[in-house]
Structure formats: structure tokens, C-alpha cells
Amino acid sequence: MSTKVALSYVNLFCTDIEAMFGFYQGLFDLEEIVESRSPMFRGARTGAASIGFSAHDAYALLGLEQATDALGDQALLTFEVPDRAAVDALTAKALLQGATQVKAPFETYYGWYQSVLRDPEGHAFRINRAG
């Protein structure tokens, strides 16, 4: 028997949840999920799945351990946009809001057009137009 599942949330552990929520909300014009707001969490709707910003206090709440020796990137968020112009425009906007460019907008070998960036806390994300 197969059970259909859907990704509901992707959460980032953040030093400053207000700043990270503000960065992504301002960049992508995301709608806050007000009913889930708490001193250690902010969430926003992004379409099929939502994005959450969890304070480091959430590690204990969830029974998780904060990584202290992780090497390299552990995750990559991808935000899908309607066209190539949006990739270019949002990349420029992200840089103005404090993001760091890893890779300027480029066409991949599989036909996507994307840029790769880091938010102000260093989380990797890309702005993408598939196909």
C-alpha cells in the first residue's frame, strides 16, 4: 500500500530568525503564516511547501543536536520563478539585500537558468527558471 506524501516545510536554523525571515519575505514577497509565529519560529508560504526559520533554541525542542563540525554545504534551497528576467532581477535584489553571489545567472547543461547565492547567514539558495 502506497501513501501519498507531500513536503510541507523546509526549515532553516538561524541565529536571527527576524532578519532571515525579513530577507526572504522581502526578496520573494512571501506571505507570513502568522498563526505559527513564536519567539523561536517564523514561517512563510511559498507554494506547495512552506519555509520556516527556527531559532537555535528549536534544536532542544525537537530533540536535535546542533552541528558543530559540519563541512561544506548541507542543504540548498531552490526558489522557482516564472522567467529568466525574474532570475536576473531577483538576483540583483538579493545582492542589494545582503546576499553573497556564489554563481551569477547561468544556463545549466540541463537547460535551467539560475543563480546561486548565500543569504546573510550563509545558507545556500538558488533562484531558478526550469526549462
Rank of each mutant, 00 (worst) to 15 (best):
R126I: 05
E121Y: 10
P82I: 08
V10A: 14
G111L: 05
L90H: 12
E107A: 11
T108L: 10
T15H: 13
A58D: 06
S50W: 11
L95T: 05
K93N: 02
N11E: 09
H123D: 13
I51W: 10
F13V: 02
G98K: 12
I33T: 10
A58Q: 14
Y110I: 03
D88Q: 06
A19Y: 02
A19L: 08
Q101I: 09
F125D: 04
L64W: 13
K103G: 01
Q101R: 13
F41N: 04
K4A: 09
E35W: 14
I17P: 01
A6R: 15
D73M: 05
R84F: 06
Y9S: 06
D119E: 08
V5H: 04
Y113P: 02
L61P: 00
P82M: 05
L90W: 08
F53V: 06
M1K: 04
R45Y: 01
D69K: 09
G26F: 07
G47Y: 15
A130R: 14
Q66A: 15
G111A: 00
D29N: 15
A85E: 14
A99M: 05
W112D: 11
I33V: 15
V116S: 13
S54R: 07
Y9W: 15
H123L: 11
L96T: 13
I33F: 12
Y24R: 06
Q66Y: 07
Q97Y: 12
F79R: 00
Y24M: 05
G26R: 09
P82S: 08
G131N: 06
E18T: 14
E18M: 10
T108Y: 07
L95K: 07
Y9C: 02
V81I: 04
Y113M: 05
A44V: 03
E35D: 15
Y113R: 07
A67H: 12
R45G: 05
Q66C: 10
T15A: 14
L64S: 03
D88E: 04
L76C: 10
A89C: 02
A92I: 01
E121A: 14
F41T: 03
L71F: 11
A6W: 04
Y9P: 00
F41H: 15
T91P: 01
T3P: 03
S2E: 12
A55I: 03
L71D: 00
A99F: 12
A85R: 09
K93M: 03
K4Y: 08
Y59C: 06
K4C: 00
F106P: 01
G98F: 10
E35R: 14
T108S: 15
V34H: 14
F28E: 07
S50E: 14
G22K: 07
G43V: 02
V5Q: 11
G22H: 10
F28I: 04
D57P: 02
F106M: 15
G131F: 05
F21Q: 09
S36M: 15
A55M: 05
N128F: 11
T68C: 02
G43E: 04
I17K: 12
F106R: 09
A6F: 13
Q25C: 13
V87Y: 10
F41M: 10
G47Q: 07
D73T: 13
A89M: 08
A19G: 01
Q114K: 14
F125P: 00
R118V: 00
G43N: 02
L12C: 04
L96R: 13
E121L: 12
L95D: 05
I127E: 06
F21I: 01
A58Y: 13
I33P: 00
R37C: 02
D73F: 08
T100N: 01
F28H: 12
L61I: 06
I33Y: 12
F53L: 11
F106C: 07
D119I: 08
